[in-house]
């Protein structure tokens, strides 16, 4: 028992191909980059600590986010805080993806990338600057980090600077441990932190 659909419902169901939309999306990415209207480009990369979201402005890498942060929520926050002109556009992130993959393969001990640190301000930003000096495979403590950033008593503030690090993995907050030797919290989860530390000990 087939009923003949009306012209109206046939029109409503005229389909377009997802492959066509994907092709047009890529064209939009290129044109937006060329015209300078793509404020934030992003992509994701699969790693041993889950899919990482990578987002960049034209100034540099803006945000690295773990799965557990909710990539959609992170993108929504970036649209609010920085600009809503956000597109999935892997081309801008190609060098970042390459270096992240090399890092997780154990072939890279430092990141050679331009960073856009606008999401971190004041003391937090100076903590991140000092974090970048903690070498691959080494660790430090929140207390030592606070002292290095010029405020020895601001241990909790140093901890929250790590907890709100917009660029985890690349800015190595996973190398900061508690003074009592415990591994401490991590925004990607304690397991991810242990995994990164093991990788850098050459034991991954």
């Amino acid at each position: 028992m087939t009923t003949t659909p009306t012209i109206e419902s046939s029109l409503t169901h005229l389909a377009v191909d997802t492959a066509d939309l994907a092709r047009l999306h890529r064209r939009l990415e290129d044109a937006a980059e060329r015209d300078g209207v793509l404020d934030i480009a992003y992509t994701t990369v699969a790693t041993p600590v889950g899919d990482l979201l990578l987002a960049a402005t034209t100034d540099g890498l803006l945000r690295v986010a773990f799965d557990c942060e909710g990539h959609d929520a992170v993108l929504a926050a970036l649209a609010e805080q920085v600009s809503p002109r956000v597109l999935r556009s892997p081309a801008r992130l190609e060098p970042v993806v390459r270096e992240v993959e090399e890092y997780f393969a154990g072939h890279r001990t430092g990141f050679d990338l331009r960073l856009d640190l606008r999401l971190a301000r004041g003391f937090r930003r100076s903590v991140l600057a000092h974090l970048r000096e903690v070498a691959y495979g080494a660790t430090t403590t929140y207390a030592a980090l606070a002292a290095a950033a010029g405020s020895p008593r601001a241990v909790r503030a140093a901890g929250s600077a790590c907890a709100t690090n917009p660029l985890p993995v690349v800015v190595p907050c996973h190398r900061v441990l508690r003074s009592d030797g415990h591994v401490g919290q991590y925004l990607g989860g304690v397991q991810a932190k242990e995994r990164l530390l093991a990788l850098e000990r050459g034991a991954a």
Partner: peptide, 13 residues
């Protein structure tokens, strides 16, 4: 709040 533009493309493309 404004949605990321990627969402606009996904919703209306």
């Amino acid at each position: 709040p404004m949605k990321p533009f990627e969402q606009v493309v996904a919703d209306h493309g």
